[in-house]
């Protein structure tokens, strides 16, 4: 299959290795990966802040970049939610509504694509460590992704998954919320990190780099030895 890679802007800027990991996993499975270079940002920050006109201009760039794609896959529950769940709302009654719906239909979050579209749960990965998984809220509640990453992790050799008690509780990132209401966001981060540490895991994994940025930010500040990795990075390791 020819897969068009969607790389959220902050992954592009901060975590290119996450995007490369997706490329590696998909190529190992025998698929062709293309990266439409005109993509920038899905438009979620202005959308979430209420500036829908501005969100639409970002979104149009994304829609154009993937117009001819067969399937679009991205390593972020949140940014894929923007495309899959929110583009149709954002363009409701606008001239581009059809294009928005078309892109929404062919866009997939990485773990859901592997499991639900390709039917793969074992990518032949190997990772030695105790891992706990954080469910990003958008992936979990907007896209209904819960079992997919776990099915994939279950087949990683050497990996032990320990569930944390607050796996489904928000890490407190929430985009601009994290700086606008920094104390609340931090309090939520504290609850999340405490729940991660309680498991005794050495690595926290998520299918969303934005959550990991928040979680890692606190773990590193507190000089914790717990690492954080994107699910794609685990699946790419051998």
């Amino acid at each position: 299959m020819r897969i068009s890679l969607f790389v959220p802007c902050f992954v592009d800027q901060l975590y290119p290795n996450v995007a490369w990991s997706v490329v590696r996993v998909l190529e190992r499975l025998g698929h062709e990966v293309v990266f439409p270079e005109s993509q920038s940002c899905c438009g979620q920050p202005p959308f979430n802040s209420g500036y829908w006109d501005d969100a639409r201009s970002s979104a149009r760039v994304t829609m154009k970049a993937f117009r001819d794609a067969e399937v679009v896959v991205g390593p972020s529950g949140s940014c894929v939610t923007m495309i899959k769940a929110f583009y149709p709302d954002l363009f409701k009654g606008e001239t581009d509504e059809l294009a928005a719906r078309e892109l929404a239909a062919k866009a997939h979050e990485f773990s859901s694509f592997l499991v639900n579209v390709l039917g793969v749960t074992d990518v032949g990965a190997k990772f030695d460590g105790k891992v706990t998984f954080h469910d990003g809220c958008h992936g979990l509640r907007e896209l209904g992704i819960k079992s997919e990453p776990r099915a994939l992790l279950a087949n990683v050799k050497g990996l032990e998954l320990i569930e944390m008690c607050e796996a489904e509780t928000c890490c407190g990132f929430g985009g601009t919320f994290a700086v606008k209401y920094a104390t609340i966001s931090t309090a939520m981060d504290e609850v999340k990190c405490a729940s991660i540490l309680e498991t005794g895991a050495d690595t926290v994994v998520s299918n969303d780099s934005s959550c990991l940025m928040q979680i890692r930010g606190m773990l590193e500040k507190e000089k914790s030895s717990v690492r954080s990795l994107h699910l794609a990075e685990i699946l790419a390791s051998r």
Binding site: V7, V11, D12, Q13, L14, Y15, P16, N17, A19, W20, F35, E37, A178, V179, K180, A182, T186, D189, M213, Q214, R216, G217, M218, E220, K221
Partner: peptide, 20 residues
């Protein structure tokens, strides 16, 4: 408001765009 409680991520030396 971020750095008070959380470490700031650093930009990758090269973006994925450039690397690709």
């Amino acid at each position: 408001s971020w750095t008070d409680s959380r470490k700031l991520p650093t930009l990758a030396p090269q973006s994925f765009h450039e690397q690709w």
